[in-house]
Amino acid sequence: MPYEWIEPDGKDAPTVELHLWPYRSLLRKDFVLFIGGTCAIVLLPLLVLLGSPVLWALLPFFAIAVGGVWYAINHSYKSGEILEELRIWPDRITLEHIHPRQGRKSWEANPYWVQLKIDPNHDRITNYITLKGADRVVELGAFLPEDERAVVFSELQDRLRMVLNARND
């Protein structure tokens, strides 16, 4: 799953920390193999045209096709570098949304007053998770698949309850 729970150690460290990122089906090492395979498949029909002037007429189109595939996958990797970090202390909760092109966005509130909600029938995203606190509503894990958002919601609800119960003890 493209998220992990961290229980950091340290004096000023949060009680619990959640990192979320978009799912990637093609790893970087597989990207190299895919582009190599694409080049081989594209260039295979050109072997018949070796020594022919037609080869030079078709070669730019094949180069554009391979370059387009490379650009599209590379662009997908760049947009997949989103990271959300949710940190929970007994007296505060923070969410940092890190986007490669849009920069960092932060939110902070008191966990005692935070309302955690999931909307299974949201018009845009199924199982839409929101946190409401400090007069703001922020979304969490909108890039995750809907079934994983439901799991994250229940785990977050349990962890938040655990932190608040430990605070009251």
Rank of each mutant, 00 (worst) to 15 (best):
H99F: 04
D147E: 12
P53H: 04
V42T: 12
A63E: 01
P111L: 13
D169I: 14
Q115L: 14
P145N: 06
R104G: 07
P2G: 14
W89T: 00
C39F: 15
A63R: 05
E17G: 10
H122E: 01
E139F: 02
S106Q: 14
E4I: 05
P45C: 09
L50T: 14
A13K: 00
D9I: 15
D123K: 15
E148I: 01
P111V: 14
E108V: 11
W5E: 05
R159G: 11
G37A: 10
N168P: 02
N74Q: 15
E85Q: 10
D119I: 12
G68L: 05
L144N: 02
V54W: 13
T130R: 06
K11S: 02
I88D: 03
I35L: 03
P90W: 07
P145W: 10
E85L: 08
D9Y: 06
L144D: 04
G103F: 06
K132H: 13
L144E: 09
A65G: 13
I98Y: 08
D158K: 03
I93E: 02
P111K: 12
D169M: 11
L131K: 07
E84C: 10
A72S: 10
I118W: 08
G36Q: 12
I88M: 05
P45W: 02
L20D: 00
N168R: 15
D30V: 07
F62P: 08
Y112I: 11
L160M: 04
R124Y: 12
G103R: 09
M162Y: 14
G51A: 07
N74A: 14
S106K: 13
L43S: 13
G67W: 13
F62V: 01
P90T: 03
Y3T: 11
A40M: 14
L164H: 06
P2H: 15
L140H: 00
L44H: 01
S52F: 08
K105V: 11
A166L: 09
Q157R: 02
A65H: 10
A40P: 14
L50A: 02
I88P: 10
C39A: 02
L140S: 03
H19Q: 04
V32P: 01
R92C: 10
W107Y: 11
W21Y: 11
E146C: 12
M162I: 15
A150K: 01
H99A: 05
P8Y: 08
S154Q: 12
Y128H: 12
V163F: 03
W21L: 02
A134W: 10
P120M: 10
P2T: 15
F34N: 01
N74E: 14
P22S: 09
P53W: 13
S106H: 02
